[in-house]
Design a protein around this nucleic acid. Sequence first.
DNA 1: ACCTTAAACTTGTATGACAACATACAGTAT
DNA 2: ATACTGTATGTTGTCATACAAGTTTAAGGT
Lengths: 242, 242
Amino acid sequence: MEFNKIAREESLSQKIEMQIRNAIRQNLFCPGDKLPGELELAQKFGVSRTAVREALRILSGRGLVNIQRGSGVYISEIDVASVVDPFYQLLEMKCGQVSQLHLIRVRKFIEPEIARLAATHCNDSDIDFLTINYAQMSDRAEKPEEMIDIDIQFHFRLAEATQNPIIPVIMQPIFQLLHKFIQATYKQSHAPDLALENHRKLMGCMRAHDPEAASQIMKTHMAQAEEHVLQYYKKHDIQITS
Amino acid sequence: MEFNKIAREESLSQKIEMQIRNAIRQNLFCPGDKLPGELELAQKFGVSRTAVREALRILSGRGLVNIQRGSGVYISEIDVASVVDPFYQLLEMKCGQVSQLHLIRVRKFIEPEIARLAATHCNDSDIDFLTINYAQMSDRAEKPEEMIDIDIQFHFRLAEATQNPIIPVIMQPIFQLLHKFIQATYKQSHAPDLALENHRKLMGCMRAHDPEAASQIMKTHMAQAEEHVLQYYKKHDIQITS
DNA sequence: ACCTTAAACTTGTATGACAACATACAGTAT
DNA sequence: ATACTGTATGTTGTCATACAAGTTTAAGGT
């Protein structure tokens, strides 16, 4: 016979953590607000400072509050990093080792659609950003390692420009992984030159709001990137698994 | 004159938390493993039990460890829920409300490519799973609410069958979000019937290893789903934002 | 071999004390 | 008046100790 498991009584600190978390969730506190001091909270909850502190630690682990020594505890605005970090960790764990090839093959079919959507929905602010981004990138034509960040920012902005909030959140961990691997292939042959050229063309498509062309160019961009990865693999005698 | 900024010393508990987290990250501990007791840790780190406890609380807040009173602290297997929960929260915050439309429009261009890759790389085990899954689904033709889980599992298996480990990890939060929304539209009109039919066809493509057909059918599948969402929106007078 | 019971171990909470840091305010020198 | 300085006060950080409460292990009796 199956009995319902007795709800194992939560610890005090868990109860307190839950209460504060719910309060935050219900927007009783706004990001940046300061929580009452530990002592005050302890008195309000009728528990010791210890219990309150542990609750606050848990909340800080969740990234919901920001504890500053000597000052106080503050509600932290929801940080993209705190969400993407575990996500990224999950990727890292699950994949054992993710290869550049896996990455580029995902981007290969996602990024063209991002470009297409971006060309449709991008606004002037996006175009301005991309313009500046392109200028920064071409300024560093001699220093490929400095281009990487800017390159990735370009793609991330496209993801944001789609006006679909799910897309940038999904792409962020992918770009984060990209950072890890791209350095190996980026310096290769004329990769930076080609990337620069592709970004220029993509910018044109954004300005013209031409989804079809944007998608096509991005496809080419990705195909070239894949080519560079494959060259790199061949050069270093790396087995292609999948 | 510029002086080097003194690296503001992290708190002890933060340092400890970092060390343990890195140890976990480097797979020095496996999920399910038991950490040394608080006292032992305190001695090893040369700090008080308090500091260790606070570090463990942070880790538990991050979802990396599972603290059991009277027993010990255990490395928790990476819990998808702990990753997806903040993910969902972020999306909720970022755009007020994530709509089904955002979701289906992402799936619309990702899933056909998943189907294409799956048709190429799927193995017998995948096909067996999908076969059973289809049978379970058609058994519940009368109970749409029970079909949802099975439906989503079908798509998730396709994601796994691509043999690209990044894809299922990215799709998981999307499917999780789907759970929350799909119930509204799933019962609509002949949605379950159409889904069943599409899954049958997709299965055929997997058996035949026909990527092009798989992609096409999935495209249709997603287009129909989008249609159902739009119908639902119209029915309930929901504004289409993007 | 099985059950019961007790001991040992582990985490949870409370209390008190002091250290380290931040902030605000008053005081001083320029 | 302004800028700097030191102090008072409030906050979080760490420590030590004690005990409560749960879990695990092992001893002991049946």
